[in-house]
Simulated assay, not measured.
Amino acid sequence: MELAAEILIVFFLVVSGVFGLVGSFGLVKLPDPMSRLHAPTKATTLGVGGVLLASIVHSVAVEGHLSLHELMITLFLLLTAPITANFIAKAHIHRHEKPSDLPDPEGDRGWASVQTDEKEIAPKP
Rank of each mutant, 00 (worst) to 15 (best):
P82T: 10
K98G: 00
F11Q: 04
K42P: 00
G23V: 08
H58Q: 08
S100D: 13
G50S: 02
V62W: 11
A39G: 02
P125Q: 05
L71R: 04
G23P: 04
S59Q: 10
T74G: 14
F25V: 15
E106R: 07
L102H: 04
S35E: 12
L46F: 13
F11G: 03
G49F: 10
L3H: 10
L79V: 12
V15G: 01
G23H: 06
L27R: 09
F19C: 12
S59R: 08
V48W: 09
P103G: 02
P99H: 02
G49W: 07
N86T: 11
V28Y: 15
V14P: 03
T44Q: 13
I88D: 01
L75R: 04
S59T: 14
G50I: 04
T80R: 10
A39S: 12
T84H: 03
P99W: 07
S67P: 00
K124Q: 09
F25R: 13
P123E: 00
R95T: 04
P33W: 11
L8E: 13
T41E: 02
L52M: 11
P82L: 09
G47E: 02
S113L: 03
I88P: 02
L78P: 00
T116K: 02
F11A: 14
H58Y: 14
D108F: 11
A5D: 14
K29S: 14
F76D: 03
K98I: 01
D32H: 13
P33E: 11
S67I: 07
T41S: 12
P33M: 13
A5Q: 08
G20V: 14
V28E: 08
D117R: 08
L102M: 15
D101V: 00
K98C: 01
T45L: 06
K98D: 10
V14Q: 03
G47L: 03
S67V: 07
E6C: 12
L8C: 12
D108S: 12
D108E: 13
L21K: 06
G20T: 15
K124N: 04
P125K: 10
L52W: 04
I7D: 12
G50K: 02
F19G: 03
P123C: 00
H58G: 02
P40W: 09
V51G: 01
I73H: 05
L77Y: 06
L77K: 05
T74R: 11
G50R: 05
S67R: 07
E106F: 14
T45M: 07
L77E: 04
L66G: 02
M1H: 09
M1R: 06
M1T: 12
T80M: 12
V62K: 04
S24K: 05
N86H: 15
R109E: 10
D32T: 12
G47S: 01
A54E: 06
P105D: 03
D101C: 01
G107Y: 11
H65C: 01
T74N: 08
A122P: 00
A85L: 03
P105A: 07
H38Q: 08
E97T: 03
A4E: 15
P31Y: 11
S113D: 15
D101G: 07
V18S: 09
D104V: 13
S100W: 10
L79E: 05
E63N: 07
P33F: 15
L71H: 12
T116P: 00
G49K: 01
L79G: 08
G17K: 09
F76V: 10
I9R: 08
S67T: 10
G64Q: 09
L13K: 13
R95A: 11
G47V: 04
L77R: 05
